[in-house]
C-alpha cells in the first residue's frame, strides 16, 4: 500500500465533515463536523511529516490540536449561551442577518 492513501482518506473525511457542516442544523453537530475536518487536516500533516522525513508536520498538527481545543471551549460556550437565550441549538434559528 502506498502511504498516499492516508491523504485520500483525509480528503474523504474532510469532505464528509464539510458536507456535515452544510447539512446539519444542530450547532453541536456542526461543531463536531468542524472537528472532523480539523482531524482530517491533522492526518494529512502527519502523513506529510512522514513523507518529508521531519517532525515539523507533527508540530503543526499539535498546534492545530491546541487551537481546536481553544476553539471548542469558546464555541461550546457560545452554543450554551445561545441556547440559554434562545432555547434552541439550531443554527437556522440564529438567522438575524436575514433582511
Amino acid at each position: 500500500m502506498n502511504p498516499v492513501n492516508y491523504l485520500y482518506l483525509a480528503a474523504l473525511l474532510f469532505t464528509i465533515g464539510a458536507a456535515g457542516v452544510l447539512i446539519r442544523r444542530n450547532a453541536i453537530v456542526v461543531f463536531m463536523c468542524i472537528e472532523l475536518m480539523l482531524n482530517a487536516c491533522n492526518l494529512t500533516l502527519v502523513a506529510f511529516s512522514r513523507m518529508h522525513g521531519n517532525l515539523d508536520g507533527q508540530i503543526i498538527a499539535f498546534f492545530v490540536m491546541v487551537v481546536a481545543a481553544a476553539e471548542v471551549v469558546v464555541g461550546l460556550a457560545i452554543i450554551v449561551s445561545l441556547f440559554r437565550s434562545r432555547h434552541s441549538a439550531s443554527v437556522d434559528d440564529a438567522s438575524l442577518m436575514k433582511l
Partner: peptide, 17 residues
C-alpha cells in the same frame, strides 16, 4: 441575489465551500 442573503449561516457556508 438578495434572496441569496437569507441570513442562514449554512447558506453562507455553502458559498464559501
Amino acid at each position: 441575489l438578495r434572496k441569496m442573503q437569507n441570513g442562514y449561516a449554512r447558506s453562507y457556508a455553502v458559498s464559501m465551500f
